[in-house]
Each structure stands twice: as structure tokens, then as C-alpha cells.
């Protein structure tokens, strides 16, 4: 069995203060292993994005511990958390969050640049990743010249270029049509399997369940008992 890349133990998170105080996560226990695409589903306000933020070291848990590739985030400073994100995590956001003044290749290269990886090697790597996400002809295109689907592929390229151990994707298909959504999920699924990454996708979209190796449901901040993914079970049975 693979060692977990992301581990959350008894994680709770309280947001707000005073009367506005809300317990967004309640005693979450979760492990993510390499080679699997996990889908996290739940209604609006159930705590999906909060959980993703805590696992992504952007929010500190109020209780419990989070370990990324063996490193605990307990008491870590903002800079230390940034280093953990830089070294181990790739993010894909709902609104892409590409830099409008940078080209597609530069947007991807940015993830290497912040790690101090520059020069010809970084440029070559960015080109390879653009090819990997199916946009080899868009190297010099700016985000304004790309469709939503293309922008999200560039965002995925930025998330994977530095070869992080875990990819966290927040509603990556929400701003896309069905065809582009399927394509993006296809890429994420392939990344999980081919490169042995842990991929966690937060989504509302039940059409994407077919890509999941594992489905997690969250309601009122608590993870529900896990069910096997029927479509995946079907795939496994078929291949057997």
C-alpha cells in the first residue's frame, strides 16, 4: 500500500468570530495516496473549499494535524507553509487565476520561477507541459486569447510543471462547458495515474464521478462514510 501523501487527522476548522462563528470542518480524518484521483463532493457551504484550503496549507486547522509528504503543518509560519505549498502542492482554481500579462508558457514557467528554476531548462519544461495539456501551439498566447477550457489546461500545466506530489483542484470544471470539463478531468485523471500523484478534485458536477478512483462526500463540515465508486468498480471488474 502507498504511503499517504496528504494526511489529515481529527481536523476541525472554525471560521468567523462571535455570533458569526461557524464550525466549517468537524473532526476530519483523511488520507490521499499517490496514483488516485479523489473527488470531494458536497452541497454548497458543506466545507469542501475549506477542507481543500486546509489540506493545501492555506488555512491552519483550529484542531488536529495535517501532514504533507511527512511534513507537519502544526505551528508553521506563513513562509514555511508557502514552502510546503511550493515544494509539494499544485493548485488548480475554479477561475483559473492565470496572469493576464503573461503568455501561456510564461504562466506555466511562473511555477518554476518561484522555485528558482529558470533559464532554457525551465522554458523547455514549460513547452513540454503545454504539449502535455494539449496546447503546444499556444505558447505565446495570452490568457485573453484562450478559451475557458484552454485557460484551465494552462492552469493545470502550471500546477503540474514542478512535479508536485499532490494536486488540489477547486471546482476545475465549474466555468467550463461539458466537453471541456470532461477533457480537463481526463488530464487530471491521467496525471494521477501516470505520474503517481495524489489528485483531489472538489466538484459539484456528478458527471465527473466517472473519473474518480475514490469519492468523498462532505456535509455540514463532516466527511460521510466512504462508498466505492460504482463506475470505477465497474472499470476494475471489466479489466479483471
Amino acid at each position: 500500500m502507498n504511503e499517504p501523501i496528504v494526511e489529515a487527522r481529527n481536523v476541525s476548522k472554525t471560521l468567523g468570530t462571535g455570533a458569526a462563528k461557524v464550525k466549517a470542518l468537524k473532526h476530519i480524518d483523511l488520507s490521499l495516496e499517490g496514483g488516485k484521483l479523489t473527488v470531494l463532493m458536497g452541497p454548497s457551504g458543506s466545507g469542501k473549499t475549506t477542507l481543500l484550503s486546509v489540506l493545501g496549507c492555506m488555512l491552519a486547522p483550529s484542531e488536529g494535524t495535517v501532514r504533507i509528504c511527512g511534513s507537519s503543518t502544526d505551528g508553521a509560519s506563513r513562509e514555511r507553509l508557502a514552502k510546503i505549498r511550493r515544494d509539494h502542492i499544485g493548485f488548480v482554481f475554479q477561475s483559473f487565476h492565470l496572469f493576464p500579462t503573461l503568455t501561456a508558457a510564461e504562466n506555466i514557467r511562473l511555477a518554476l520561477d518561484v522555485r528558482g528554476e529558470r533559464g532554457a531548462r525551465a522554458r523547455t519544461r514549460a513547452r513540454e507541459v503545454l504539449t502535455r495539456v494539449g496546447l503546444p501551439h499556444k505558447i505565446k498566447a495570452f490568457p485573453r486569447d484562450l478559451s475557458g477550457g484552454e485557460q484551465q489546461r494552462v492552469a493545470i500545466g502550471r500546477a503540474i510543471v514542478a512535479e508536485p506530489s499532490v494536486i488540489l483542484a477547486d471546482e476545475p470544471t465549474a466555468a467550463l462547458d461539458g466537453e471541456n470539463g470532461q477533457a480537463v478531468m481526463g488530464i487530471l485523471s491521467a496525471i494521477a495515474k501516470e505520474q503517481n500523484r495524489a489528485v483531489l478534485v472538489v466538484t459539484h458536477d456528478t458527471r465527473l464521478i466517472g473519473f474518480a478512483d475514490r469519492i468523498l462526500r462532505i456535509e455540514d463540515g463532516a466527511l460521510q462514510p466512504e462508498e466505492p465508486n460504482r463506475s470505477n468498480v465497474y472499470q476494475i471488474r471489466s479489466s479483471a
Binding site: A82, K83, I84, R86, F91, F93, H97, F99, V114
Partner: peptide, 16 residues
Amino acid sequence: LYEFATLRAIGCSNRY
């Protein structure tokens, strides 16, 4: 600001 927040999210150091 969203770009700077994105930089922070992807692990950018303060110095950068």
C-alpha cells in the same frame, strides 16, 4: 491583488 494572492497560493516567497 488576486494575482499576488495566486502567487502566494502557489507557494511564492515573500521576497519574490
